[in-house]
Each structure stands twice: as structure tokens, then as C-alpha cells.
Write a protein that binds this DNA or RNA. Sequence first.
RNA 1: GGCCCCAUCGUCUAGGCUGGUCUAGGACACCGCCCUUUCACGGCGGCGACACGGGUUCAAAUCCCGUUGGGGCUACCA
Length: 546
Amino acid sequence: MEDCIMRMWRLKYDEGLLGGVSLEDDSPDRAMVLWIEFLSRCPTPCFGVFMSTVRCRIAPSPSGFLHIGTAKMALFNWLYARKMGGTFVLRLEDTDAERTDETFVKAMCEGFTWLGIDWDEGPAFGDDGPRGDFGPYRQSERKVFHQEAGQKLLAENKAYRCFCTREELEVEREAAQREKRHRNKCACRNLDAAAAEQRKDEHHTVRFKVPEGHTEVADMVQGTVRTENRELDDFVILKPNGDPIFHLAVVVDDALMKITHVIRGDDHLTNAARHVLLFDALGYERPQFAHLPMVLDETGKKFSKRLHGANVLDWRDDGYLPEALINYVALLGWTPAEENRELFTIEELQEAFDPTRWSKSAARFDRKKFDWLNGQHIRSLAPSVLQERIVAILADAGFDTAQKDDAWFATLTEVCQEKLATLNQIVGLSDFFFNEIAEYEAKPVKKHWRADGAVELMTQLIGRMEGVKDWNRDPLKDAYKALGEEIGVGLGKLVHPTRLALTGKSVGPGLFELAELLGKETCLARMRQGLAYIETSLCDEGANAS
RNA sequence: GGCCCCAUCGUCUAGGCUGGUCUAGGACACCGCCCUUUCACGGCGGCGACACGGGUUCAAAUCCCGUUGGGGCUACCA
């Protein structure tokens, strides 16, 4: 098999049809994946086989919001489809009516929209109608297909009606476990077809008749996984009310939607054997499978739904960029071929994404590293774009952004772009532009305003400020430098007390930049306010001491 | 319990298939220094790992077996 693949590969390679890929460098595994990729994107009949183009899908069940784990799977499917020039399909697995709610559907799609993960085919959402020729794209509207498939299996004796009660099954399940043996197939399996047909109005499920032998699933990530069929029970495919069970529904939907690559979480790895059996039994072509490890939280546990950050929109609310989240999540399970490279735009990701470099082991979500990556993305943002986002955040924070003009915000952006790890940090970096100083941080007060001569120094600084005619960062800095030289102290000695008076804090944007933005009048007023604070607190101390 | 998957610095990982070039490389974090008005950015340096035990071999992070740990499946959930 491998030889055959390599030969065909070589043939195409020699014909120059595999531009840019060197055969010699590649392992058989990689060659096989690349070959499959090649076949998939091949627009013309190839060796007598007409290969369709890549079709990937994400099939979430809308039970609340877009979970970070679902987002990873969506991302990998989407990136792969985009890389291969294929189609990305969104299908809603909303068969569990109790857990499905339209507000959930909306919330989830909002997550995708924020991330910028768009689908070529999918259900109606908002003002957009459904897209694609393989609908409907909501599983709840596809029951006829599932039932039809179930009936076909029944008719071909590949499935049977099971009249066992839950209680009976439970007893057998427990007995099997106690006696350390496999579960016995129930008697219904061998019921005469005609007899069973007569009882079809009785309460029953339809079970798939798992054949003898073993099942192999060729997985793009996990390699070939072999399962002994005796490990698989005759699983239910249709509930008593005729509704399909998940296993039947996914297989039928994936097949009918012509999905070529099923890329999903490795929690489905064991299920894949069942699915393959179903694909075969229904006469469908098997898709390629790829089972990716799931996303773990910072403690190494499965990312709980209740944890902050499980909802991708939490990250939006916390000031992270969607492109940064996509970059980070892509890195959680994929390594670029280009070594020592981690920063990717979405376009670069679509180009570089390579399924042979998908990782097999689960990765923790590391907030610190994500912070760093987000900071990198913020730095590479066009200033005008960053400005727009910053203004929105400040407005949301309740600041009166209308009082400043565009040029002012442009300067603020320029001054802060290098400092932000998250967008939201802009609030702490610029609140003093919009609000009066309510209180001064205790530590810097002690350090800079309690020193001997603080009052004199502040008085002198106020004098220098008053003397600055052209109120800009450079003249102001020059004035400060001049004073420093005259009285023989470093710039820092002048800057810190000033920063405290102007912002109430010890950290923030560059002092002279910030003073420029604040304006001369406000600066002077705050310096005088600071001076008064020093004087009164000295008085208080004096009073307390006596 | 049975079956399946996974296992390199604290974290994400390169290397593993094709054993020697790995006294194990990078990134984040941490620590130190430099730059600097603070913080951040940036630069330089440091700390830090092949889970354990057996094999195979002249040689194992790499191949094999076992153990341990983590995860999954084992539903008339998806």
C-alpha cells in the first residue's frame, strides 16, 4: 500500500505537479498525508478516480456559548479548508431539544463572527439566509435522512429492533462488569425479521448489528487505530420515538454533506470505530479522520464550561484580539515547520498550516504566554485601528471621550501602543485624563512626597511649567532637564513627584507625553493640588505627633 | 473494571518514523544585567526537561515490553 502511494507520488512529483515539496525530505507518513492532500485538491480525474475537493465542518451543539475547545476544532477545520481551497461547513447539532435555545445559537455564532471564522455553508443566522447546497444545516431538520438510513440498515438486516427495557439492559451491564466479561448481545438480535416487524408498534429501539472482527481507523493525527469489534456493543441508532442517536446522525450528515475530512476532538477517537462501521454499512465512502487533543485549562484539567475563558467571548471582553486568540490556539496543537516562529497573522496561518505537524498530546492554555502574544499583535496593529478600539473601550468604561479630538487620541495611541498586553489595560493607563485625581497611591507618596524639600521642589517645578510657552513634550522635557542640571539632581527626581501629582500613580505613559496630552492648565492645577496635599499631610503628621 | 489515546524544562514545544551530529534547541514565565523618568518594550545572559523500570544495540530522548500518571469511550447525551 505504502509502496503504491509512494510510486504514484513519485509519478506526480516527476511531472512537476507537486510544486515545492521535496519527496526525499519526507517520511512515508508525511508523504501519505501530502499525497491525500494532493488528491483532494486535484481538479481533474486522477488515476481514474475523481477526487472531490476538501470539505470540512464544525458541528457544535449549541448549548450555551462558543467553548474554547469547540473554537479550536473549528479553527483547525477552517484553517485546513482555507489552506486547501476547500469548503468549510457549519452544521448545528441541535437534536437535543432541551439543551438547545435560539439565544445559544446566536451566542455561538457571535463567537465565530468575533474570531473571524466564516463558513461557506451553514444555517441561517441573523439577517443572513442559509448558504450551501447540502442543507438543511440544522441536524434537527434532517431527521428524515437519519430515519431513512436506519430503515435501510433494518431492511438489510444490518440493524435490528430491540425490545429490551432499560432495566433489563442495566442488569446485564452490571452482571457483565461483575463477571469481567463482555456484554451478551440481547435476544432481539436474532429475532426473526418478520416477527420483529410485526411488533414494530411496541416500544423499541433500533440497534446497529456490529459485525465480527476488527475495525481500523486511519487517523491523520493518531495513526492507524485498531479496535476489536467485540469491544463495541450493538449501539442504538434510533430512539423509540424515531429520533436518531448521535452516531447515526453524524455519519449520515457527514456523508450526505460530502464531508471529506472529519477533524474533531480526540474524545471521539473511540467513537470513530463505530462511525466507520456505519459508513461502511451504509455504503458511504469513509472520510479522512483527524482526532485532535482537547484544550486544557491552566491547571491541566479539561477546560470546564464554568471557568472564565471557556467562552471565547470572555477573551474579547478582557481586551484580547481575535487574531491573537487564533494565533495562540493554532499554536496549541500545531507547530510551524519554520522553526522559532510563533507570530502569525491569519493569512500567514492559512498559508503555513500543515496537518503533518498537528500534535498528539493535549496542551494547557497558558494565560501568560497568551498575554505576550496578544501584546505582539497589538504592537503590529495599524495605529488607526488600535485607536478605534481604544476609544471604544474608554467609552465603554464610562469616560467622556467626546471631550477629546481625533488628534488627541492618535497621540494617546502612539504613546500607549508599546505598553499594552491587552486592550483593556488602556483604562488604567489613561483614566486620569478623564477623571480628577481622587487619591494618591500610598507607596509613591511615601517615597517621593515625604522627602525633605518636597514642597520646595514642587514649587520649583510649578514655576518651570508655567514658563513653558509651547506646551509640548520636548520643550517641557528641556525645561525639566535644565532645572535638574541647575540644582544638581537627576531627571528621575523631578519626574516621579510630578507623575504622582498628574496621575496619582507611580506607573503610566511617559511623563512628558502624558503632560502634553493633559494640557498645561490641567497640569498646573494638579501640581498645585499635589502641593497642597503635601502641605496638609505634613500638617496632619505634625498634629498627630504632638 | 474493560478497551483506546497521550507522556521532553513550571508551561507550549523542536528533535523521535530514518538510533550516533542532543554535554537535548526555541518561545512564554522566572532571575540578573543593559537601555531608560516609572511601567512596559527592546537587547544580553542565567535557571530549567527526555515520567519510572526493564530490554534490543557498540550506541536509545529516539525502537520494544512493562509500570505509573493524565485523558477519553464504555447512554434510549452530543
